[in-house]
Design a protein around this nucleic acid. Structure first.
Length: 257
DNA sequence: ATGGTAGTAGCACTA
């Protein structure tokens, strides 16, 4: 298997962040970048701008909210914007095949607040994803799930665990759902390598959170066991979060032999 | 405990 690099980035509007994403691709040259929160209908996705710099675009969007995409140097196969057992009108999922690897780009529901209607939607959404993955692993033992999970896996992924205790993004039921998914046979690629303490992928726009590094690690690249021996690095690139008009998330980059 | 910022849309909603 020839080496490749894959990344994920919640851009919070592809229209606002277009030049930043183009610059980042030109500098970093990943083979594949998964985007979340593109916030455009498919007719408005700026695919031509990506094609101009050597990336094919695959996307599933809607008006105002959600929206996911893959940008890839090489053509991807078998694009799917929904799951057989989900049928969700919200555009939060994009599946694709790259080589012999199944890629699943996820924008997990935020959940708003523990106990809210959106919270229960988040939990049941995650259950359906888990059921689907359980089936898919037989067909595709090489599987990568990446995206905005809207869950900080452990307190090591939270700047202030006391303040976030049982709050949205950190509550026990959400973390249990994530654990169930990981328990199917996945690994949090970021934790396969030694990392600095207080490494985060999202910082709230308010209260100068980024300046104070008051963040959470909620963007993940999960890889199946069959890919472990190929994975040689995973890092968070904080640079885009320092740009003018940044997304509130920053990219995660994972490399394979 | 509350509200703070940003994007979309052009108000209130979502995050």
């Amino acid at each position: 298997m020839a080496g490749f690099t894959i990344a994920t980035w919640n851009v919070n509007s592809i229209r606002v962040r277009l030049s930043q994403v183009l610059d980042w691709l030109k500098t970093n040259q990943p083979d594949i970048l998964a985007l979340q929160e593109t916030k455009v209908i498919d007719e408005s996705f700026p695919w031509q701008d990506f094609q101009n710099i050597g990336y094919q675009a695959y996307y599933a969007g809607q008006k105002t909210y959600n929206g996911v995409a893959f940008l890839s140097k090489n053509p991807l196969g078998k694009i799917a914007a929904d799951l057989p057992n989900l049928q969700d009108p919200q555009r939060r999922i994009l599946g694709a095949i790259y080589k012999d690897i199944y890629l699943l780009n996820l924008y997990v529901p935020n959940g708003e607040r523990v106990g809210s209607e959106k919270y229960f939607y988040k939990l049941s959404w995650l259950s359906r994803i888990k059921d689907y993955l359980e089936q898919s692993l037989y067909q595709y033992p090489k599987l990568i799930i990446l995206g905005d999970f809207n869950i900080a896996p452990t307190n090591d992924d939270v700047y202030n665990p006391v303040r976030w205790d049982e709050k949205i993004l950190c509550s026990t039921p959400e973390r249990e759902k994530l654990k169930e998914i990981i328990g199917l046979g996945f690994y949090d690629s970021f934790r396969l390598f030694i990392q600095e303490q207080n490494s985060f992928s999202w910082w709230d726009y308010r209260q100068n959170s980024f300046m104070h590094n008051r963040g959470l690690r909620i963007d993940l690249i999960l890889i199946s066991k069959a890919l472990i021996s190929y994975c040689n690095s995973c890092r968070i690139d904080r640079a885009p979060r320092s740009s003018d008009r940044p997304s509130d998330h920053t990219p995660i980059v994972c490399s394979f032999n």
